[in-house]
Design a protein around this nucleic acid. Structure first.
Length: 762
DNA sequence: GAGCACTGC
């Protein structure tokens, strides 16, 4: 029965009508709610109602208990203000410091006002990380007194915890929403989209912001909330200033909703002079805290695995020394390393309690966690009172000139330093020791870390944008526009891969490539692999290339690990070695210790299995045949040929006898990475990765034949326009020989695939 | 004879 008072409104605005005229508000907690016109008083009343408005079940005791805790959150007391802003604006920028409760509460407030369940729509809230999406969804499901996966759910890669038709509040990774946008550019399932942790500026969030800004003009019914933790809200506000230039409106920044945080004060100390050796200074500071400061755990930020393990060893030695000399005045110290490649079991150690006093009545023990940036955002450790911040982290940088992404130890930003300091104040007031001068903090550190979009190879992102229907990628309204050269490099690669035509339009092939959660080169290989009858193998290889390193090498068992690796190595190709590893893993599936016994990461292999299954589903969706060649020799050649179809731009030619290679066209001098399993130094190789560490290396390498380059990538290897040099001369010799073969005096050579369908991909 | 900061699809 419709509410007669609302008859003049379109159905979407009529909101909740009573289910029966008598005692309507008793049976219907949302009685009188009008979508997007809801007031705080109404919501609070509904929250106190004996019935859950979304399940019509009585609220549980647990619900009431949690509700009490929620009322204490800073954001809760500003509900009226928020709902008012939400009613009146299409786009809101929200700033909430840690502990404000924004991630759990704002989406619920939105739900009560937007009433997505009455319109068959969803409210989405994006997160940069999978774990966050899962755990926040669970928390909010508890708060709303519903079962996770029903009204409240989450959606991340490999796991969709939602029920179509039932779920109306969905937490998801930013990458997942971007994927959805590729198939529904209007994002028509959603009535409100909340981008959380926007200050982290992940590539996916940045692209989503551009999309949503555009989409907001077309979909006036879509509301957007951009939530961020830092105070650079003005940038978001100006970016999302909605005005209709054609109607002559003046630009006005998007409205800001601001909520204070709830953390304890952290006292910050600086050094008087710059520290020449930050690791040494960090160790010294940790021990100083241990000797002189009140009980409480320490978090030290360093840049990488090696540095961390090294520092842990030294801290432990010194601390044991202190304890032995003066056990009555210094407590025992426990030092725990933390970085992402650490097995989960060892990561758990950061939650262990600090050690007990060495004797009754002696000083209590202390825990020191020595961590990479992972403890800055991804992992929270309670009980940290002291933070030691040397001011550095490893950051990805992209050099479009030589097309290489590398990790560089660089100074952190002010925002990052602030975030690190905040880690000391989660449970009680704390202290942060910065191992740089206050002057350097003020004048040398950048305000914000450069967003990922300025530090990455954008080949993937550009393909996604093309699939999203963005016509002019250079003019796309980025919050921060990438370097034109980075875009050019991406466009060039995609054009050579035939994903984009010469006018920059997405080709049919490119459209399919974009469907694979892979780098464009790998997607291309997978799609062409049936022509070489090796798509079954290529599924495995592309999966293995998209997971972290599988090889384990424990410091005390290096020789044994190297030996185990040698047993699985295929001498002409690291790619074939990866295939071999997976196949062996598969055959020994029943042996739970197989991975460990062979010094391989079981976690990574399980992940490869997952990725492979996902890629296979996409292959099947597009009717791409999955097949194998019986003959091992032919199969291996087919695989190497298929690899050439995607990686012809990542080829190196041997130069002299000292193990040096020159990359084709860019002429970078590179060496084979020490992890490479090739037993010789073939004249031509293709490589998966160019890494720049102590010197430039190419990693994951396969021997190829130069004639394959001329055959499968004639445009890229057009010798008329090829830069002069030894590489060109070598290719010319091959071209002449090939012509000889073509004239009929050839002696076989590799069997080539049919050319007919391949042409369509060039 | 080195290294994988961290995410994500």
């Amino acid at each position: 029965m419709d509410n007669p008072y609302l008859a003049h409104l379109p159905p979407s605005q009529r909101g909740i009508a009573p289910s029966s005229s008598a005692s309507a508000s008793e049976k219907e907690p949302l009685f009188g709610f009008l979508s997007r016109k809801v007031k705080g008083a109404q919501v609070r009343k509904a929250m106190d109602h004996q019935l859950n408005p979304f399940t019509k079940q009585p609220h549980s005791a647990q619900y009431r208990k949690i509700l009490e805790a929620r009322r204490a959150l800073p954001v809760f007391s500003q509900m009226d203000e928020f709902l008012e802003l939400f009613s009146k604006n299409q786009i809101i920028v929200m700033v909430g410091e840690t502990g404000s409760g924004k991630t759990t509460q704002i989406p619920q407030f939105v739900t009560y006002s937007d009433l997505p369940h009455t319109k068959g729509k969803l409210v989405a809230c994006t997160q940069p990380r999978r774990v966050a999406a899962m755990s926040v969804a669970q928390r909010v499901a508890d708060e709303m007194d519903v079962q996770l996966g029903k009204q409240v759910g989450y959606s991340i890669r490999f796991e969709d915890m939602t029920e179509p038709g039932t779920t109306f509040l969905k937490y998801m990774t930013d990458g997942m929403l971007l994927r959805e946008a590729m198939n529904d550019t209007e994002l028509s399932r959603y009535s409100t989209i909340i981008l959380d942790e926007a200050h982290e500026r992940t590539l996916a969030t940045d692209i989503l912001m551009g999309l949503l800004k555009n989409l907001a003009k077309r979909r006036k019914d879509l509301k957007i909330i951009v939530m961020s933790a830092t105070l650079d809200a003005l940038k978001f506000q100006s970016y999302f200033s909605l005005h209709d230039a054609e109607a002559g409106e003046a630009p006005s920044p998007a409205p800001l909703f601001k909520v204070p945080g709830r953390t304890h004060p952290v006292e910050v100390f600086y050094t008087q002079e710059p520290e020449p050796d930050y690791v040494e200074a960090a160790i010294r500071t940790v021990l100083m805290i241990h000797r002189a400061e009140d009980p409480g755990d320490i978090l030290l930020f360093l840049t990488g695995e090696e540095e961390i393990e090294d520092a842990c060893r030294k801290i432990k030695l010194e601390a044991d020394d202190l304890l032995n000399t003066d056990p009555s005045s210094v407590g025992p110290l426990m030092c725990v390393p933390l970085y992402s490649s650490l097995p989960p079991q060892q990561q758990q150690r950061i939650f262990d309690a600090a050690p007990k006093p060495s004797q009754e009545g002696y000083p209590p023990g202390r825990k020191v966690v020595v961590s990479t940036n992972i403890a800055e955002t991804s992992l929270t450790i309670d009980g940290i009172v002291y933070v030691v911040d040397p001011g550095f982290s490893k950051q990805k940088v992209y050099n479009p000139r030589i097309r290489v992404e590398s990790l560089l130890v660089s100074p952190i930003s002010k925002a990052s330093a602030q975030q690190r300091a905040g880690r000391a104040g989660r449970t009680r007031p704390g202290k942060c020791f910065r191992l740089y001068t206050e002057k350097d903090f003020i004048s040398e550190l950048e305000e914000q870390t450069h967003p990922e979009i300025l530090r990455s190879n954008l080949a993937n992102a550009v393909l996604e944008l093309a699939k999203l229907g963005i016509k002019d990628l250079v003019k796309f309204d980025y919050l921060d526009a990438p370097a034109p050269e980075t875009l050019m490099r991406a466009l060039e690669l995609l054009n050579y891969l035939a994903a984009l035509d010469d006018d920059g339009e997405l080709t049919a092939l490119g459209g399919v490539m974009a469907e694979f959660p892979l780098d464009p080169q790998l997607a291309k290989i997978l799609i062409v692999s049936p022509e070489f009858k090796v798509s079954n193998e290529m599924l495995t290889i592309t999966a293995m290339l998209s997971i972290p390193n599988v090889w384990l090498r424990p410091p005390n068992q290096r020789a044994a690990a190297d030996q185990a690796k040698a047993m699985l190595t295929v001498p002409e190709s690291d790619h074939l070695t990866l295939l071999n590893v997976f196949n062996n893993y598969w055959q020994n599936k029943q042996d739970r210790n197989w991975a460990w016994n062979n010094f391989l990461s079981a976690r990574a292999l399980a992940q490869a299995e997952n990725v492979r299954a996902q890629l296979q589903r996409t292959m099947e969706k597009y009717d791409i045949d999955i097949m194998s060649l019986e003959d091992e020799r032919k199969r291996n050649i087919g695989i190497r040929q298929a690899l050439t179809c995607g990686f012809f731009m990542q080829v190196a030619h041997k130069e002299g006898e000292r193990g040096n290679y020159l990359t084709v066209k860019d002429n970078q001098v590179v060496g084979l990475h020490p992890s490479c399993g090739l037993d010789s130094q073939p004249e031509w190789v293709l490589f998966n990765e160019f890494v720049l560490t102590k010197r430039p290396y190419i990693r994951t390498v396969t021997e190829i034949k130069p004639e394959w380059l001329l055959e499968y990538a004639p445009l890229y290897f057009d010798l008329a326009s090829f830069p002069d040099g030894e590489t060109k001369r070598a290719l010319q010799r091959v071209a002449i020989k090939r012509r000889g073969i073509g004239n009929g005096n050839g002696n076989g050579g590799e069997s080539r695939p049919k050319k007919k369908s391949k042409k369509s991909y060039e």
